[in-house]
Design a protein around this nucleic acid. Structure first.
Lengths: 151, 151
DNA sequence: TTCATTTCCATGTAATTGCATATATTTTTA
DNA sequence: TAAAAATATATGCAATTACATGGAAATGAA
């Protein structure tokens, strides 16, 4: 007589959902805490700069960053502001499109990536990799692609 | 010569980590968007009220909510404020402990749970369950317990 | 070409979250 | 029991995020 069906395969999915969300948020907080404890900026800075480094000489437009990072447009706009203010990226207007701009990682940005990586990797190892078998890690990797755009 | 090792089992774990975080954030945003589109409050309200409903007549202290939801103390404090202001929970001081209080879901709170559940469930079905096989759902459920307290 | 639509980006304001710290009470220690 | 430490909760302030909207340029349709 409750409004929640507490048995059967449907409930299994709901449980899995709840665990996934809780676990991933919890994990993320622990990794962020490690970065902060090392006096480093948040993960989102790393992700953005990593995309810019991957983009190489061509750079990336904010809208590209938006799609690759699955962020809202206004969040990208503000994130780019902060990264620029901190000297980790440079903007250039695009001559071929007056609306657009292109972002490039700076030398300092590259240095930041290098400084963050050992801490980041160690946090991943400790909080994510360590409690799992290699098999489970591969399962996660495979399963999660179902939720991400373009394989 | 890069600072990132792009091969081997270590990198597999990093890829799995990145996919897990991106996918779960993306999923969460989609479910939140469905709730908002239906004119309903955010998921965290549902989670909190669900815990209160489960707690039944005994109620729950904020600190219990904090542990069950894996939230920071100040976030619980503010969440409880909002839920109380909206009339979805009631607070009572604890006579046995002058610092503490106990929270109870109100009738309106129960109504809100019932109103949110069909939208929430449908969002889970659509965004989470649908793209996966039953086997993968069970794998997720099992794997994620490794990251949660008291399995 | 002209006008409507879409794309790309920014921003004012409000809501939320994070951080540090405060307050009151209980528990522990000496 | 007095003092110290720990627990439960709140809150001022800063940073971030969300929402709504704006503006400028490009694209497409008529």
């Amino acid at each position: 007589m409750t409004d929640i069906d507490r048995s059967g395969p449907e409930d299994e999915a709901v449980t899995a959902w709840a665990r996934l969300i809780r676990a991933s948020q919890h994990l993320l907080e622990k990794v962020e805490a490690d970065l902060k404890a090392a006096g480093l900026p948040p993960l989102i800075w790393y992700d953005a700069l990593l995309e810019l480094r991957r983009a190489g000489r061509a750079g990336l437009r904010p809208v590209d960053l938006q799609h690759r990072m699955l962020l809202a447009q206004y969040n990208v706009s503000r994130l780019v502001d902060r990264l620029e203010a901190a000297g980790y990226l440079q903007r250039e207007r695009l001559k071929s499109d007056g609306r657009a701009q292109v972002l490039f990682i700076t030398t300092d940005g590259r240095k930041l990536l290098k400084a963050m990586w050992p801490v980041y990797r160690s946090a991943i190892d400790q909080h994510f990799t360590a409690p799992l078998s290699g098999k489970k890690i591969r399962q996660i990797s495979k399963i999660m692609t179902a939720f991400l755009p373009a394989g």
